[in-house]
Amino acid sequence: MERIRAAFERLRRARRKALIPFVMGGDPTLRVTRDLVRALAEAGADLVEIGMPFSDPLADGPVIQRASGRALAGGATPQAILRLIAQMRRTLRIPVVLLSYWNPVMQYGGGRARAGDPIPFIRDAAHAGASGLIVPDLPPEEAEGLPQAGSRFGLETVFLAAPTSPPERLRRIARASRGFIYYVSVTGTTGARARLPREWLQGVRQLRLITTTPICVGFGISTPAQAKMVARAADGVIVGSALLRTIEPHLRHPAALTKRAAAFLRALRRSV
C-alpha cells in the first residue's frame, strides 16, 4: 500500500499543495510528540515527518540539533518512536514519514552480529504504520536495494536532491525515490532563513522535466510568504526548524506548545 503516493494523488485532484511539518520524536517527551502530531494534523498538515534523534546530526542546523539532543536526553529510542506511531496510527488520518540518519537504522534490532541490515527497521516501521522513510545522509548509490525492500514492506523511500546536484544525479535520485522527492532548497544545513535564494526554483523545474514523482521543498522555509512562493512551483512544502523554534520557548508547557504549533501551521496553511 503506497499511502504517500495516494495522498499526493488526492491532493493533485483537489488542486492542493501538501503542507508537511517536521517534528522530532520524543522532543521533549513522546507524549508531547503525540499531542503535537495530532494538533498539526487538525491544523491542516497533509503528511507529517517524525524525526528520530541522532547524536551526530551533521545535516542539521542548531534548532534541530537542540531538538535531537532533548529527545535523546528524554530517552527516546527508535523502538519507542515506532511504538508511538503504532499507537497514533489508529486515529491519525495522514501519512507519517520517518526521518532518520542512517546509523540508527542500520543498528536497529541487530546487535553487534547483525548490525548492517536495514530490513528489521523497515519491517517494524512499516508494521507500526509509517508510510515513508527519509535518510539525509544516504545518497542513492549507497542505498542499493533499499527502495525495493521498502516497497516489499510498504515503506516509501524518499531521497533528497540539492541545488548542487548535477542532471545525472537528479535522474538517479528521481529513479530511487518513492512517494516524493525531497528538494533541499538551500545549499546548507536545516534552519530558517530570512531570505530564500531562488536557486531551488531552477532545480525543481529541472526535476519536472525528468520525473512525474511529486516534489516537496524543504530547508529554510519559515514564513507564510516563503511557503506560498514555494508552493506555486512545488507539490509540497516542508517546514521543520521554524516550527521547532516556535515551540522551543514552551517545552515545559505542553498545552501552550501544541497551541502555538497549531497556530503557526494554520498561518502557513492559509498561504499554501
Partner: peptide, 20 residues
C-alpha cells in the same frame, strides 16, 4: 570505484556534498 574497502568506506553524506 565507490570508495569501498570490502564492506567499509563509501559515501554517506548529504546530497549537497556529493557533487563536491
Amino acid at each position: 570505484r565507490g570508495g569501498h574497502f570490502g564492506p567499509f568506506g563509501g559515501k554517506f553524506v548529504p546530497e549537497t556534498l556529493m557533487a563536491a
